[in-house]
Amino acid sequence: MREVPRESSARHFFTGATTAIACQMDQRFSYRLYIPERREGDPERYPLMVVQHGTARTATRYRDAFVGFAEEQRVVVLAPYFPAGIIDPDDLHNFKYIEYRGIRFDLVLLAMVDEVARRVPIDTRRFLLHGFSGGGQFAHRFLYAHPDRLRAVSIGAPGRVTLIDDTTEWWLGTKDFVSIFGKDLDVPEMRNVRIQLVVGDQDVEGWEINNPHDSNWRPGLEKQGATRIERLRTLRRNLAEHGIDTRFDLVAGAGHQGVKVIGHVADFFRSVLKEPAGGDGPTRHEVHR
């Protein structure tokens, strides 16, 4: 019988769509990858795209939805998985606000990126990040915390947004940003990140986001608007007031359905990957599709 190298099975499971992999920094959390099989002409280090799930935690579904994009653009996809019920068994929202009961989900994600880089040749300096709904909440707050790590961010239909506002506490505003993150909010660096805001033009149901008796409500949230469209426009205006340009995609025929905006997210990231890393920011415009 031919001897099989000990590492062969591990290599097999680290190509294509991987199984769930425990984060070595904190094994309560895990991630899935899509890794294109290396071929002639590939970059020395693949660009990295992180796809953050929402409240329903459909990490595998989102990872799989970007497989075609990963093969076409030769990028590695990382889909983190942050379970509900960490510490509080009834909690659904932990990761969305970056910091939760001593857990820094931004640092867990960065640890995952470093772990992947030890196995797969990826460019970890600046990566792409997309999240929809709860993932969109995480994505824009991660932008605030680590703009220097992002080449581009796609913020999909967040039900609650954090505004740059030094009079209102986190997570509605950024008054206590330094005490949470140990550094100042770096608005000039945020201007270097390509930003997409994306939401369906039928995303108007408010039952999940206008819920003052739930744990994820803060007084003042109602001022952001009654729908996810209105709240995303509020975020856009706030960023513009600080000189941060965005692309706004209003997707025709889409409700609160992450799969229906994926094509627009892919188009945005294609445009980013055509540019040299660290290029000029986007021109402010609105797209209706």
Score class of each variant (00 low, 15 high):
R6P: 13
E7G: 10
R11P: 00
A17K: 15
Q24Y: 01
Q27P: 15
S30F: 06
Y31K: 03
L33M: 10
R38S: 03
R45T: 10
P47V: 02
M49S: 00
V50M: 05
Q52A: 04
G54S: 05
R57E: 08
T58N: 15
T58E: 14
D64L: 14
F69V: 09
F69D: 08
E71N: 11
G85L: 09
P89D: 06
D91K: 06
H93R: 06
K96S: 05
R101V: 03
V116Q: 08
R118I: 07
F132I: 09
F132M: 15
G136A: 13
A152C: 06
A152I: 05
P158Q: 12
V161S: 07
T162G: 15
L163R: 12
D165V: 13
E169W: 10
T174Q: 06
T174F: 10
V178W: 00
I180A: 00
F181W: 15
E189M: 15
R194Y: 02
Q202T: 12
G206R: 12
W207P: 03
W207M: 10
N211P: 00
P212F: 02
S215D: 15
S215T: 07
Q224V: 06
T227I: 09
T234Y: 04
R237Q: 13
R237F: 01
F248L: 10
L250K: 05
G253T: 14
G255R: 13
G255H: 07
F269S: 01
F269K: 02
S271E: 10
E275W: 07
D280L: 04
T283Y: 13
R284E: 08
